[in-house]
Computed example of a mutant assay.
Amino acid sequence: MLRVLVLEDDEDLRSILCELLSAVGAEACVGAGSLAELERQRVEALGCGLAILDINLGAGVPSGLEAYQWLRGNGFSGRTVFLTGHARSHPLVRQALELPHVQVLSKPIDSKVLLSLVVESGSHGTGTT
């Protein structure tokens, strides 16, 4: 079954995403609100097959892009999807779009899109237990 990491600074949105992901078939959801919180959950986060990362985690703190680099640097091999409420012209969004093998989706994300992410990521066998 697929384990999903959700990195989102908005606690309510993070909770809703985890609930929706569980409802559409994710085995577990590891939620974090910052890179520091993600680092504290290292083992659980690195065991996920899908990472959904908010690109902008707030002013003056590491971004979702830095979290992506941390994940990759620590051996994360799952699928990565960035979420953003910003326009494609925003510098962080442009950087994310240049990364290989990632997807960038706009907020709000539709539950059908979440379902397809879980199904597609689960079928690739990454991060399953």
Rank of each mutant, 00 (worst) to 15 (best):
S15E: 06
I16A: 15
L17S: 02
E19G: 07
L20A: 03
S22D: 01
A23W: 01
A23C: 04
A23T: 00
G25F: 02
G25E: 03
A28W: 00
C29P: 02
S34Q: 13
L35C: 08
L35K: 03
A36P: 07
L38A: 07
R40Y: 00
R40E: 13
E44W: 02
G47R: 15
C48H: 06
C48L: 09
A51C: 12
I52Y: 01
L53M: 05
L53C: 11
I55C: 12
N56H: 13
N56Q: 09
N56S: 14
L57W: 07
L57H: 08
G60E: 02
V61T: 11
S63G: 05
S63N: 03
G64Q: 06
Y68N: 07
Q69L: 15
W70N: 09
W70R: 11
L71T: 06
R72E: 09
N74G: 12
G75H: 11
G75K: 13
R79A: 11
R79V: 10
T80W: 07
T80E: 04
V81M: 10
F82W: 09
F82L: 10
T84A: 09
T84C: 15
G85L: 10
G85F: 08
A87E: 08
A87C: 04
R88Q: 11
S89T: 15
H90E: 10
H90L: 13
P91C: 02
L92F: 11
R94T: 11
Q95E: 13
A96W: 05
L97Q: 11
L97K: 05
L99P: 08
L99V: 06
H101C: 12
H101W: 05
V102N: 04
V102T: 13
Q103D: 09
V104C: 15
L105C: 12
L105D: 02
S106E: 13
K107H: 08
P108C: 13
I109N: 01
D110G: 05
K112R: 15
L115D: 01
L117N: 01
V118W: 06
G122T: 01
T126R: 15
G127F: 03
T128I: 04
